[in-house]
């Protein structure tokens, strides 16, 4: 069984991270922004698992990955509940139109 070099894992995670960042930066829609953030978390998890596989001592990376997934699930639940409320108040989920608090 041949092995896949570490760099390939890392490059994939970097690409995934940047796609997520693009989604957040363009700010088209709150749900899409949340999706982008989740992609970034996934990129971090791939990184952790890849480093964990190549690091011989404790496999801490895998444990950290598990916790990171659960934590992001919790924050997605809360963030979606808030987005739902925003939709009920403003009737839109476009960040540009939700703008009552100003200097």
């Amino acid at each position: 069984m041949s092995t896949i070099p570490l760099e390939h894992f890392l490059l994939m995670s970097a690409a995934l991270f940047c796609i997520g960042l693009y989604a957040v930066l363009t700010r088209r829609n709150l749900v899409i922004m949340l999706i982008g953030i989740e992609l970034m978390v996934n990129a971090g998890v791939i990184n952790l698992a890849a480093f964990g596989a190549f690091e011989t001592s404790h496999h801490e990376g895998q444990m950290m990955g598990i916790f990171a997934i659960v934590l992001s699930a919790a924050s997605v639940a809360v963030a979606l509940a808030i987005i739902l409320k925003v939709y009920q108040q403003f009737n839109t989920i476009e960040p540009g139109k939700i703008d009552t608090l100003r200097n």
């Binding site: 709150l30 108040q89 939700i98």
Partner: peptide
């Protein structure tokens, strides 16, 4: 969050917080 202003504040807070913790997770990795 039943008031628009609170809902808006909360969504800004939550999304930005989630973003910064995602970046932090990548840094930790």
């Amino acid at each position: 969050a039943e008031q628009p202003r609170s809902a808006e504040a909360a969504v800004k807070y939550a999304l930005f917080g989630a973003l910064s913790s995602a970046v932090m997770l990548y840094g930790i990795s």
